[in-house]
Amino acid sequence: MQIDIKYFGQIAEVTQQKEESLEFSGTLVSELLDILYNKYTLLKDKDFQVAQNQELVSIEAKVTGTEIALLPPFAGG
């Protein structure tokens, strides 16, 4: 399955791109993240939440959508 992944804030700095497409054959969001952790070693140190098809999901959720976003918290004001 083709997955489009969007990166925000500090996450986009780690991946050095705002979005990319990946071929994914696993089941869970956490498995997709493992692929990304493997690809971007600095990602492990970052806090973020995952949205699937514009909805926040837990990492134990099944990948059902084609769009995933990695969303870090922002402190600034």
């Binding site: 500090q10 970052k46 806090d47 918290p73 600034g76």
Partner: peptide
């Protein structure tokens, strides 16, 4: 409900 716990100090810098 969005971000359950604060990031570890120093991991998310401010302006």
């Amino acid at each position: 409900c969005l971000f359950p716990t604060p990031p570890e100090a120093g991991t998310a810098p401010n302006c």
